[in-house]
Write a protein that binds this DNA or RNA. Structure first.
Length: 420
RNA sequence: GCGAUCGUAGCCUAGUGGUUAAGGCCCCUGAUUGUGGUUCAGGUUAUCGUGGGUUCGAAUCCCAUCGGUCGCCCCA
């Protein structure tokens, strides 16, 4: 007997009822804002992620599922922004009317130790907006995520937001930060000493209590609180905060927030839930003005987010699997199948045909197990007179009507094109 | 990669060194060949995660390993 690989899960019909509701809600919210879906391959060249996500990131360093085929190295996508940017460049989307607004939904793969809210195969829904460098664009993108969460009635959410600056001022800031933290290197943990050289911004996010205490020291905090980004970045961020306020979106400016992907510039944000486990971010994103160019395209600003479907679905009220509207019980399976076709042509309804040929009592028992709302009895006498007996399973009441009359009671097809 | 914790049928649980591993749910059959839910009778499903060790004897004790869950790291 086999079981699904570590860190992967089967999604069963009872799970997918909720997933479908979440997916449909997400599509409607995104498409209402004129975002359009894009589907990119599940694997891309390894180099795309190395360059796109960043050589110094954990994702690239230890979490990628990579494999060799022929003389090329391929990788199962650990995230989808790099793939979408690759497609943006490949298909000349810089010539599309701006902004270009895309969303995606699909499985991602990261080789990590599974825990609550973390799997090796998981699903992300993401939205990306290309071609605008304005704080309004940042706000619009954040607003959409908020609207989605609101529609899904997700409780206990908080928006954490920060400004990590542009490539120019971030380099300056890094240097200054190194100077501020240099005296404490001896007391800081090994990871932080490592990060001091590779990516000092990430030090601030360290969970080690010792390190945390050091970063809370007045000298360090004083440096951090003065907003060390350049004038343009600062203006951009202040303006964004103002827009969020006017949109009545509550936020927490968390100066320690740094994202683990290298491509972010200026705005980064995370939406967390207090109903999740240790992995409490439902949604993360930010601005990535350098990525399109980095991956070989025209210099194009962009902003976006990705949310974890498993985490999101776990926060949503469960949706029950749909029960059939009609259950056809008959000793003549061919006649039952014909009636089912007539029902589906006349109106949209789920129909289950009993294929067993067992006696009527067994067939109704089966209908009851499946929670069918209505049983249609098509027995010898009904067939003889071209009628059907309609039994309401809730009340037990039943009546016999001519088949034609019964079909007229059905709601007409909402989509006539779907009628075969 | 590190740490904690748990593995008995599809699911839940009993059994804590001594026959053939017990019960509930689910599923199947019958009571019941034109009317369900209740009830009753019966049935299928477990090399007790796997491998090794201790013992006259192991689901039970020990070691290893695999898997689940949770946490660290990091992220959605």
């Amino acid at each position: 007997m086999y079981s699904a690989p570590k860190g992967t899960h089967d999604l069963l019909p009872e799970d997918l009822a909720t997933w479908h509701m979440v997916e449909n809600t997400a599509r409607s919210v995104l498409e209402a804002a004129n975002f359009h879906e894009i589907r990119t391959p599940v694997f891309e060249s390894t180099e795309l992620f190395a360059r796109g996500v960043g050589e110094s990131t954990d994702i690239v360093n230890k979490e990628m599922y990579s494999f060799e085929k022929g003389d090329r190295s391929l990788t199962l996508r650990p995230e989808n922004t790099a793939g979408v940017v690759r497609a943006y460049n490949q298909h000349g989307m810089d010539r599309w009317p701006k902004p270009v607004k895309l969303y995606y939904l699909g499985p991602m793969f990261r080789y990590e130790r599974p825990q609550a809210g973390r799997q090796r195969q998981f699903h992300q829904l993401g939205a990306e907006l290309f071609g605008l460098d304005t704080p309004q664009a940042d706000a619009a993108v954040i607003l959409i995520a908020m609207q989605l969460f609101q529609k899904l009635e997700i409780p206990g959410l908080a928006l954490e937001i920060n400004n990590v600056g542009c490539f120019q001022c971030r380099a300056d800031f890094r240097e200054q930060l190194r100077q501020v933290l240099a005296p404490y290197l001896g007391e800081l943990c090994g990871d932080c000493n490592q990060r001091y050289h590779t990516n000092p911004l990430r030090m601030l996010d360290c969970k080690n209590p010792n390190c945390k205490a050091i970063y809370q020291k007045p000298e360090v905090q004083a440096f951090l609180s003065q907003d060390n980004t350049c004038g343009e970045c600062k203006t951009h961020f202040d303006s964004l905060l103002g827009i969020l306020e006017s949109l009545a979106i509550p936020y927490h400016h968390n100066r320690m927030l740094v994202r683990g992907l290298d491509y972010y510039t200026r705005t980064v944000f995370e939406i967390t839930s207090n109903h999740l486990g240790a992995q409490n971010a439902v949604c993360g994103g930010g601005r990535y003005n350098g990525l399109v160019k980095e991956l070989g395209g025209k210099d194009t600003p962009a902003v976006g987010w990705a949310l974890g479907m498993e985490r999101l679905v776990s926060l949503v009220k469960k949706v029950e699997k749909q029960a059939p509207a009609y259950y056809i019980a008959s000793d003549d399976v061919a006649a039952a199948l014909t009636l089912a076709q007539s029902i589906q042509a006349a109106g949209f309804a789920t129909v289950e045909v009993d294929l067993s040929g067992k006696n009527l009592g067994k067939q109704i028992t089966q209908a009851n197990k499946l929670n069918a709302q209505t049983v249609l009895v098509l027995g010898e006498s009904e067939r003889a007179e071209g009628s059907v007996t309609i039994k309401n399973m809730q009340t037990g009441e039943q009546q016999t009507l001519p088949v034609e009359a019964f079909l007229k009671t059905l709601a007409p097809h909402s989509n006539p094109a779907a009628v075969v």
